[in-house]
């Protein structure tokens, strides 16, 4: 279990980091091209959009594995560890179910996109292929939330993710 967890996390981390680096490199290249040579690279916008989808939905699972969520802890903080554990089990089981449900809806939507045969205007890539990262992200995060439940049921402490204990250093950070 630990090994599988580690492998998934490494792949996710790789995708996240290199998607961001690629977006940066492409955008910089595009500006330089336009400023110096007067033409825009039309594919840059499209590829960046694809990568943002990868970042968001793969990141969804990676964030879950790190216990990084924006959530309100005002009431939760008042609970004793026993009740925190119970809440963690409830929250993570229900969130896992929701993620699976969304994965199902995502496949339904992808079916429509596939039927319509929508292709990206510049690179002519079928969009449904890119959108497959969406249900993939939902399923991977359902697994993460499931693992969190498993960890809370089998280990003594309260865990906010499979590998992270519920401590102030690692909790919830509002990002904006």
């Amino acid at each position: 279990m630990n090994k599988l967890f580690a492998i998934i996390q490494r792949i996710e981390a790789f995708l996240l980091a290199w998607s961001i680096i690629s977006i940066a490199a492409l955008s910089i290249g595009n500006v330089v091209c336009r400023a110096l040579f007067g033409f825009s690279l039309a594919f840059v916008g499209e590829v960046s959009q694809f990568l943002i989808i990868v970042v968001t939905f793969i990141g969804l699972s990676y964030a879950a594995s790190q216990g990084r969520h924006i959530r309100m802890t005002a009431l939760y903080d008042q609970l004793n560890p026993r009740w925190r554990k119970i809440m963690m089990v409830i929250i993570n089981s229900l969130t896992a179910l929701l993620m699976l449900l969304l994965a199902g809806y995502a496949f339904e939507y992808i079916n429509t996109v596939r039927f319509l045969d929508t292709i990206s205007p510049v690179l002519q890539v079928p969009l449904y292929l890119i959108y497959l990262f969406v249900p993939l992200g939902f399923i991977l995060s359902a697994i993460q939330y499931g693992l969190t439940v498993f960890r809370n049921l089998t280990a003594p402490d309260v865990y906010i993710s499979y590998s992270q204990k519920d401590e102030y250093e690692t909790t919830v950070v509002g990002e904006v």
């Binding site: 996240l16 290199w18 680096i21 970042v55 968001t56 990676y62 964030a63 790190q66 990084r68």
Partner: peptide, 20 residues
């Protein structure tokens, strides 16, 4: 850079899933 990009990617995902 890859390590920093990973942290950026994580923050981006947390923000963008909320955007979605």
């Amino acid at each position: 850079i890859p390590d920093i990009a990973l942290s950026t990617g994580l923050i981006t995902a947390v923000v963008f899933i909320l955007v979605g």
